[in-house]
Design a protein around this nucleic acid. Structure first.
Lengths: 170, 170
DNA sequence: GTGAATCGTTTGTGTAGGGCAAGCTATTTG
DNA sequence: CAAATAGCTTGCCCTACACAAACGATTCAC
């Protein structure tokens, strides 16, 4: 039936006609599915998807100046301000003046922020279970690793495997 | 440093404290990055990201009634109409009356639609190269497979490996 | 066959995400 | 001191969508 893009691949002395595999559309599609469901789960926590993305970035980047955050999120600076205002109002993040350059705000996740993020992730178990239903645990972990690597430029295996406190089992 | 969610895992007689790995936020983040770049690449082709998603779905689902498409895309019916109007105006899809139930429109990808989709995917090589830069070819293929499986409920290895025409190497 | 339900379409309305620009303060740097 | 920079606020605009209502065509149930 349908037509599909191809590139020529030379594999072990033979030329194989192979379709082009672009993940963009799939990523878009899947992200939408996640987001739709996540919205309702997150609402009771006073969060929206983009807040969760922001918190996630902050957790693994540690404190970072606001502009860097804007770069990472690839989002306009003014909108980041609003986003951080929300999060700060809820006590999930803190803006600290950088001692090196007092014009800068270093944005850090508060303890509460970490906990809320953790709770949100637990609450999202059902959502993920629904959307990624056809992937087994190993596959989901692989997917997570790949996404992490793509987003961060390097794979993050398990940054703080031996950390304390936090909200144990969901 | 930061706190993170955990669940208890019993692995071979030992209890391992393991962080919860939710892909939602990463998916969202990565999809955004892709979409931002894709928009400018797609614009010259008269397409926007959601058009590409639609075409992609149609390619691998074959013809399907409009409502099913609406379900798959998890998008309101009225918006799907608009989306399809765009695509039909460009001759990329066709709406055919279903012989079984003449109320229904069966939506199919036209030959031109397939070609344009293929061309778009080729054009997106640079984008993907940029966003997935830290993944090697094998990893990208793995990612693609997982996304495909998640979206479709089952993994699609290479539906029509022996198809003809189409636009060869980018 | 007549009425009820269904598929798709159009139109209209509302909301949220988010880009972009201008103007401001505090601060650093030349 | 002047110029550049980080962040904040306000205001404007556009796009993606959801949702509702009303319509024609068709099917289905009685």
């Amino acid at each position: 039936m349908a037509v599909s893009a191809r590139i020529l691949f030379v594999v072990e002395h033979s030329v194989v006609n192979q379709p082009v595999h672009r993940s963009g559309a799939l990523l878009d599609h899947l992200a939408r599915r996640m987001r739709l469901r996540a919205e309702s789960v997150l609402a009771p926590l006073g969060l929206r998807p983009r807040h969760l993305v922001t918190l996630t970035v902050l957790r693994q980047q540690g404190g970072c100046p606001q502009q860097e955050l804007s770069d990472t999120l690839e989002m306009d600076g003014t909108n980041v301000v609003g986003l951080l205002n929300d999060l700060e109002a809820d006590g999930l993040i803190e803006r600290r003046r950088s001692p090196q350059d007092r014009r800068r705000h270093v944005v850090v996740l508060t303890e509460k922020g970490g906990h809320v993020l953790a709770r949100a992730e637990c609450a999202l178990a059902a959502v993920e279970n629904d959307v990624l239903g056809s992937l087994d645990d190993t596959q989901r972990e692989t997917l997570y690793g790949l996404l992490q690597q793509a987003v961060n430029g390097t794979q993050v295996i398990c940054t703080e495997a031996a950390d304390d406190d936090s909200d144990g089992a969901c």
